[in-house]
Design a protein around this nucleic acid. Structure first.
Lengths: 239, 239
DNA sequence: GGATCGGTTTGATTTGCATCAAGGCGGCGG
DNA sequence: CCGCCGCCTTGATGCAAATCAAACCGATCC
C-alpha cells in the first residue's frame, strides 16, 4: 500500500516512517460504476487518493440536477483541503464514473502528522495554491468565454502538446457538465468545429486538424495558461 | 506597524519576534482611487494587507473588459497563496476603488519564516482552504443560479443577520461585475425586487422588506420542492 | 435476428441576459 | 446657478444557449 501512496505527489515526499503511519489509518475502497462515495454536506473526516478508475466531484441542486466540478484520475487526491477547517463538511458529492479503487485516508491523523513535517506542509500549501489558481481560471472561463471557447480550450488542454489526436475519457454528457454546458450544446459545438474542418470526430476519438483555428475559437490571448494538470510546479523553498 | 499587521487573522497568531521580522520587510503603500497596484501576469514577489480603503481584484479580457473576481476590505490579505508556487505570477489585476492604504509584505521572506512555525502554516492552510470553498461556491453560483438569484444572495449575505438595512459599499457597476452580470441587468433586477415589495432602494441604501421572499429568489437550498413525486432524487448514482 | 435501453445527435422553440441606444440624475467645477 | 460628465436607469432589439421533443445509434440481452 505504501507504494500506492507514493503515486500521489502530495505523499511522495513523505518519509518511510510517515508513510507507514499514514497507511495504518488508510483503508481500501472499491466502487462500482455510478456508485456514490460521499454526499455534499457529509462530515469530512477522510480524504482520498484515486488508484484506479475515474471519480467525479459534483454539486447537486435541489431539483436534482448535477454540475460536475472536477474529474479526478488515478494518482490524484481530493478533499484533502478540508482537514484544515474545524468542523468540515464536503462541499461537493463524489461518485465513481467507472469501477474504481481508492485509498481512504484519515484526515485527523494526517493533519497531526503534518505538524511534524513542515516540508509536507509546504507541499500541501503548494497543492492548494495551484488548485486555487485553477478555480480562478475556471471562473474566468465561465464568465468571460463562450461555450465553444470552453470546449476548444478543453480539447487543447487535453491534446498532448504535439499529438493531433486525443480520446475523451468520460461520457460526453459528463464532459458537457464539467464544461458547464448542456449535452445538446456540446454536441452542436463539436459538430460545428468538425464542419469547419478544425477537428475530426469518431465517437470518443477526436483529431485536431487545425490547431491554430482551434486556438482562435478558444479565444486564447497572450499568456493564458490552460488548466493542464502538468503546468506549474511547486516551490519547496528548501534551505 | 506591528499592531497593524495584527489586524490580519493570518498574522495575528505570530509571535512578536516573527512580526518584527515581517515588518522589517514590509512597506507601506498608498493608492489613489482608480490606481492600479499590479497587473495580471506580473511576477508575484509580494502580497498585501489592506489597512484602509477598498481593493478590487479583477481579470482583464483582451478587449479591455474587466471582470471583478473579489473585493477586498480592510483587515484582509490577498495574493498570499502565490508564494508557494515556484515562479508565481499574479493571476489577476489589483486596483484601488477608493483611496487606500496597504502593507506590502515580502513573500519569499515570509515563506522562509513560515518554515519555522507549523502553527502559522496551519493558519495559512485553513485560510486557503476557506478560500477554496468560497470559489467552489462561486462556481456553483455562476453555473446553477440566475442573475436574480445571485443578487438576492449577495444582499442576504451582506445584510447583518438581523438588520433590515444595508449599504452598497461600491459603485453598482463594480458590484454587477463582481456578480458577473451587466450593470443594466443589475439595475433591472433591483427594480424587479423593489417592484415586488421585497426590497426598498434609495441610492446605495437598501432595505430588505421581505427576507423570506428574498431567500426564495436566492434559490437557497431548503426549497426542495415542487412536484417531484417522491423525495428520492433524480440522481443516477446510488449509495 | 429483433427488442430494449442509455447515450448522443438533430431540429424547433423559448428565454435570460447582453447589447445597443437614449434619457435621467446627481456631483462638481466654473 | 448652469452646464458638463459619469453613472445609473429605462427601453428596444439581438443572440447564445437552454429547453423541449424526437430520432438515431451502439451496445447488450433475449
Amino acid at each position: 500500500m505504501i507504494d500506492e501512496l507514493k503515486t500521489a505527489p502530495l505523499l511522495a515526499g513523505l518519509s518511510h516512517g510517515q508513510l507507514e503511519r499514514v497507511s495504518q489509518h488508510a483503508t481500501r475502497v472499491v466502487l462500482g460504476a455510478e456508485q456514490l462515495l460521499f454526499s455534499q454536506g457529509d462530515p469530512a473526516e477522510r480524504f482520498y487518493l484515486v488508484l484506479q478508475g475515474q471519480i467525479q466531484l459534483f454539486r447537486l441542486s435541489p431539483g436534482g440536477a448535477e454540475k460536475v466540478i472536477e474529474l479526478v484520475s488515478p494518482g490524484q487526491t481530493f478533499a484533502e483541503a478540508l482537514m484544515f477547517l474545524n468542523a468540515p463538511r464536503y462541499p461537493v458529492c463524489a461518485g465513481a464514473l467507472a469501477p474504481s479503487e481508492l485509498l481512504s485516508l484519515d484526515a485527523r491523523d494526517f493533519a497531526l502528522m503534518l505538524r511534524e513535517s513542515v516540508d509536507t506542509c509546504f507541499l500541501m500549501l503548494g497543492s492548494l495554491s495551484q488548485r486555487l489558481r485553477g478555480l480562478i481560471g475556471e471562473i474566468d472561463n465561465l464568465t468571460m468565454h463562450t461555450a465553444s471557447s470552453r470546449v476548444a480550450r478543453y480539447l487543447l488542454a487535453k491534446a498532448p502538446p504535439e499529438r493531433r489526436s486525443l480520446k475523451l475519457d468520460v461520457r460526453k454528457g459528463v464532459l458537457a457538465s464539467r464544461l458547464s454546458i448542456q449535452p445538446e450544446t456540446f454536441s452542436r459545438v463539436m459538430k460545428e468545429l468538425a464542419g469547419r474542418g478544425i477537428i475530426e470526430v469518431h465517437g470518443a476519438q477526436v483529431t485536431i486538424l487545425d490547431r491554430a483555428a482551434l486556438g482562435e475559437v478558444a479565444e486564447l490571448q497572450d499568456n493564458v495558461e490552460l488548466g493542464s494538470p502538468s503546468s506549474g510546479s511547486v516551490n519547496l523553498l528548501k534551505r
